[in-house]
Design a protein around this nucleic acid. Sequence first.
DNA 1: CCTTAATCGAGACGGTACGTCGTGTCTTTAT
DNA 2: ATAAAGACACGACGTACCGTCTCGATTAAGG
Lengths: 215, 215, 215, 215
Amino acid sequence: MDEQKIKEQSRVGGAGSKVDPPRETRRRGEILETAILQAAWDELSDVGYTHLTIEGVAVRARTNKAVVYRRWGNKAKLVVATLQRYLPKPPRDVPDTGNLRNDMLILLRGIAQPLQTVGAETIQGLMAEYLSKDLIASIPQIMHPGTESKSTIAMKTILKQAELRGEVHLENLNPRIISLPIDLLRYEILITHEPISDRTIHEIVDDIFLPIVQV
Amino acid sequence: MDEQKIKEQSRVGGAGSKVDPPRETRRRGEILETAILQAAWDELSDVGYTHLTIEGVAVRARTNKAVVYRRWGNKAKLVVATLQRYLPKPPRDVPDTGNLRNDMLILLRGIAQPLQTVGAETIQGLMAEYLSKDLIASIPQIMHPGTESKSTIAMKTILKQAELRGEVHLENLNPRIISLPIDLLRYEILITHEPISDRTIHEIVDDIFLPIVQV
Amino acid sequence: MDEQKIKEQSRVGGAGSKVDPPRETRRRGEILETAILQAAWDELSDVGYTHLTIEGVAVRARTNKAVVYRRWGNKAKLVVATLQRYLPKPPRDVPDTGNLRNDMLILLRGIAQPLQTVGAETIQGLMAEYLSKDLIASIPQIMHPGTESKSTIAMKTILKQAELRGEVHLENLNPRIISLPIDLLRYEILITHEPISDRTIHEIVDDIFLPIVQV
Amino acid sequence: MDEQKIKEQSRVGGAGSKVDPPRETRRRGEILETAILQAAWDELSDVGYTHLTIEGVAVRARTNKAVVYRRWGNKAKLVVATLQRYLPKPPRDVPDTGNLRNDMLILLRGIAQPLQTVGAETIQGLMAEYLSKDLIASIPQIMHPGTESKSTIAMKTILKQAELRGEVHLENLNPRIISLPIDLLRYEILITHEPISDRTIHEIVDDIFLPIVQV
DNA sequence: CCTTAATCGAGACGGTACGTCGTGTCTTTAT
DNA sequence: ATAAAGACACGACGTACCGTCTCGATTAAGG
């Protein structure tokens, strides 16, 4: 076990090497957590979900695996937490332009953006790992079948406003129709790999959704 | 090769142990290939895509990793080949009952079945690994965005028949609408984890698709 | 980590199987190291250097390859470490019987014994792998060309004692002559495969060495 | 097994590719054998004994493993055959200059040269593999303990000539002394890794051998 | 001259071991 | 109590060679 010590970890010498800041105080709690999530976020954009490893994140955060596992338990949970923190939030307030079509376009664009940021690879990876888990649902921006997500609520709100204006009739409208635009958006994200064009959103609204509800 | 036989490996020998049938002749080509795919298919249903390993398949097929790698190179390719062989083929002939609604129900049920058999986990896993790869497209039963798949062609055929009967007008109908029912079916597979109910198929046809095309 | 436990690996469990003692606490550091070297030593005498494998040693030590590689990096280093620990040390103190011939016989017998224990196969294997490496030199009992080994020093001491008694003249005596007996001993080990007989040692001393120095 | 066929073996097309000469007639017997040994010899000097593989030799000779195995059975046998063919033969006739010292110097230089060419690594490798085998003996230039090799015979001849001239007395001269110079030469080859200097040969003759026999 | 037997070329096969990587757990030390 | 550091048990990765075997194609020899 003599000549093995090649990967000399530059730490011992009290002085501190050029790279390592002389070791500030030991991190813990919030600060440490943030450092890890930051590292995970960086790692995610550097190597992608598939090649992201707990080990890599720990190294990048200059901590060790156990610390990560104590908090998140596995890769998917870590990534979910990372997304929850760093994903751009969709607009909180529901659009209300006085016109259903406009409202819908705005809403869908707002939903599409964070999904684009995450990228299909990560979404696929998460879903592959967390199938039949309800973890996914905890990222409001991401898939949540059946759940009364914020997106769905926003959609309903928009529709009710339109109904008040007499643009549509909502009675005995299948819930599936209400979630239809968002579903198609998500499907597009999962299946294609190019960013969602505005044309796609227009088609969903003009060629599919409006014809159904505006009978 | 004299002193080689130290770690006496329980060679075949005349006796033959309890487990090993005296080892028929060395398998090759088609026979061996089938054995491996069979093993992969079994493994897939036993442990699922995520926990399927090349090693496990090799052991189950009573061969070794190199033989598997020589043919398929990685897990995804192996699984794709397995699905191509063992997945129930969707009905080859397009339904023609003289009624659009009936035709569509039959078609969608025929498409849904193989997807169910594969299971969402495998599909997700494959897509996560083969994102932006065209491998997936080689399983006709599975996702193939944009491709003129057999399913889409069947759908078009049905619609043309309906047009001849005067049930619908196809001129300037967005292609997105044509693929809409199949897309929704796939989305359902990816997102939910229960088998697709007939009610779902009915909703897709009656509440979404027909209202659009039967203006 | 829920659905991970599919391939139920016969975990330790309270019961414990026939073979595994319920697994004491996880071994580390010195204890583990000793277990590995012990296993290597056993493996060495069971299958010989040629057929010794890191994998085999790891299994025998009930640990895994990575642990072994972390310490020794390759087979040769592992075996060297093993020999350093388990090889019988040659007598530390230089013989001093008041008679050169006797001293030499005692010394050579002391040197021959550990070499016999290692066996020619291992020595050859090590030398084949570590040619032009200086690793070998770290086993004092084994070959070390040119090095001022303990053996050589002992030899010199004996000769100086003999010179004081007037038995020999050392001035302008070629160093090659001093190392001659030991060299011949080593050569014998490398070339023949039977244990070195006392007759051989006698010949080296009486027929070769003494005639040269006792001119 | 579709897209696997990357290693397109350029052979089929009647035309013949740029690299492969249009495939002369199929080799066999002597010609093939020579091609293999030539390949082995090249491989030996390129990668050394340790990293020489049957597979590599077969590829280099543009044939296949089975052909090699049919003839030599294992690496050691192949290398031995290669050395027998390509090693420079030591001078066939025994030196006779009328002076023992000169004769010995000439003889030893003649013996040393082929050993140098082979190199210590190969010798070590062969010995490690063929310990306690008598195969080695079939290379006259290499080690052959106890055997009445040509070298030993030459040595005896030289000494008898010297005895006739009255330079030495051979009666009751231990055989070990006769083989002593050659043994030391071999030991030097095995242990050191630099080429044997003429000074070394002089020391063996002048400081060790002659003092013994010229009492 | 034509058939037969041998053996080459090509490469797949069953097998062992390689050395590495990542997971998730555990221990030790220090704060 | 828990961060930091890192070792450990475990499992799988993908590769390299081993020595054997199968399959056709080609070649030399024998009737």
